[in-house]
Design a protein around this nucleic acid. Sequence first.
DNA 1: GCTTGACCTTCCCCTAACTGGAGGCCCCAA
DNA 2: TTGGGGCCTCCAGTTAGGGGAAGGTCAAGC
Lengths: 129, 129
Amino acid sequence: MNIGDVSTRSGLPAKTIRYYEDIGLIKPQRSENGYRCFVEADLHKLAFLGRARALGFTIEDCRMLMALYEDESRASGDVKQLALEHLSKIETKIADLEAMRDTLTELVHCCAGDNRPDCPILKDLSGKV
Amino acid sequence: MNIGDVSTRSGLPAKTIRYYEDIGLIKPQRSENGYRCFVEADLHKLAFLGRARALGFTIEDCRMLMALYEDESRASGDVKQLALEHLSKIETKIADLEAMRDTLTELVHCCAGDNRPDCPILKDLSGKV
DNA sequence: GCTTGACCTTCCCCTAACTGGAGGCCCCAA
DNA sequence: TTGGGGCCTCCAGTTAGGGGAAGGTCAAGC
């Protein structure tokens, strides 16, 4: 398979696939003409990566997950720990965003949003509360 | 005031303050010795920026918010619109993160997390569901 | 056989919002 | 005068790729 086929089948942009090779996540063979030459196993890895990334794992997380995936003697506890750490980061981000959302929502509700210059949002940002 | 004082009083790192000058958000005077020389108005602006950034506004949003703040004839509607757009981006991010969290939570619950290699998390990532 | 267009290659710059560090001035106190 | 801290500029790195240029390759159509 050429990169275009793999891109279509994995749903990942060709650029991303090249990037993943660059950073050593995949190691496709090369044809005589220099084209990358992917086999099913590569496609499978890319799909794995795509799903892990969609769950918000960082590239380095993905690297570890792949290593664990390929290690037949792994302990599922290691995977779970990785996932739990990631989960906790996500929870933190959600909490941060929710705090922003709540503050903003309140400010927005206080703002008339008309043609007059008086604006509680700016007032709050300027510290004159 | 030197940058160290402003940093302390605004809570922003000196690096960040220099960066904000670099991109034109603030324009402190200079002393004879080349040091940045801040007045209260600069400090006020930096505090404004710090609060806007803490609410998740991008630098470009901040630039517009500052312009609106300094425009006595602004319409509060413009500010509100900016805030609403930002709010909607935040809601989207929260929703995305919650989807990840839910999926991850489920996977984590299914994983024994012991010394055995069998792991539903990896199984899911590999597509063998 | 030649051309054309799609596909592939590498290489380099760009993103956001800083952060870290190197190398070098400046200032104040002991 | 020396030392330590503060300040300066400039450069590079961070995430996870995206955009695009310049050029090689391949298969179809004439």
